[in-house]
Design a protein around this nucleic acid. Sequence first.
DNA 1: GCAGTTCAGCACCGATCGGTGCACAAGCAG
DNA 2: CTGCTTGTGCACCGATCGGTGCTGAACTGC
Lengths: 194, 194
Amino acid sequence: MGRPRAFDADAALEKAMVIFWEQGYEGASLTDLTEAMGISRKSMYAAFGNKEQLFRKALQRYTEGPGAYVSQALQAPTAREVATMFLAGSIRANTLPGWPTGCLGVQGALAVGKTGRIAHDTLTEWRAHGQAHLRERFQRAVEESDLPADADPDLIARFIMTIANGMAVQAAGGAEREDLRRVADTALRCWPPA
Amino acid sequence: MGRPRAFDADAALEKAMVIFWEQGYEGASLTDLTEAMGISRKSMYAAFGNKEQLFRKALQRYTEGPGAYVSQALQAPTAREVATMFLAGSIRANTLPGWPTGCLGVQGALAVGKTGRIAHDTLTEWRAHGQAHLRERFQRAVEESDLPADADPDLIARFIMTIANGMAVQAAGGAEREDLRRVADTALRCWPPA
DNA sequence: GCAGTTCAGCACCGATCGGTGCACAAGCAG
DNA sequence: CTGCTTGTGCACCGATCGGTGCTGAACTGC
């Protein structure tokens, strides 16, 4: 009994997920969230508890929606297909047209709100500069025949930088130095990588 | 002429760098920063301008300090040594004892302040769960002889997850789907990776 | 000594944060 | 219709944000 709710809680949760995805937890203010969800603060609290619980539910929805590739990949018949499907699904989820770029699981504490946009852009540029330096160096290596003539300096630089970026996320999650060292060794087992 | 400043601006900048490194730009409040620097807000503004400029100077100091491995690696004689030194330096900088873990260039917009700690931990756990599922699946592959008996499921899972994490950072920086696809192909060119 | 200049500390600014009390409207059971 | 419950919107809470005006002390050149 009582008055039924006048909005679609599931649709509202999806809107909230998008805001968290593109702005991160701290960067997403209650005003941002409720405006996107099209409901009042009070309705949000009544329906979802508080901001933290809303975030958890948004993450769960992400896992079942854009992040469903994880469980799908795990069902592949061979280990190689698991890895291939996992990475392919990750790529797809990271670059869905009409959706925020990147992964909510990383982005959620990587993206920033309005006040942090400056720092976000500064760091994106900083990483791009580092990658550009690598690319130029590998370009030189091609010219010096240190790398094969058909090697792709841009790809190699991006590959190495991707490993480094990934290791930074791993380290933020508590990975030990020896863990990372073995990852790097694995990445360099085949050289040149392309 | 005039009264000289009573604190070491360079030491203060280093303290600020550490706070940004472990708490991110938005997560580092002026109170956090000035307390760590041991100076008043007014002194900070007089010496560094504002929070944004302080962040830029802290990033520059990071580049010249813990991040100096980048320019060092670029001077290596061969491309392979460049890649090896770059990754090794990245690992070292990500896991310096007595310093924050991870990379300021990623962390600066990844880590969060007090209010975001909950989300940060939630996401760290979320990523760890995904990696654990991968590990269990690769463990099964070893038991099924789909992977060699000496394959290391933990390492393979961490390697794949590191690529995925790195691609998420790349995507947040604007990488296209095709760019990421080639990175993933590169990572899977040698299989099994260990 | 003096005058000039700059530093440091405190209180305070408006804005925004996450979260809530209250009045009222909307729908239920009888 | 009358009670009763519950969703909704508005105004507002204390806390904190980045940033500043003011006061006085500390140091310089003369």
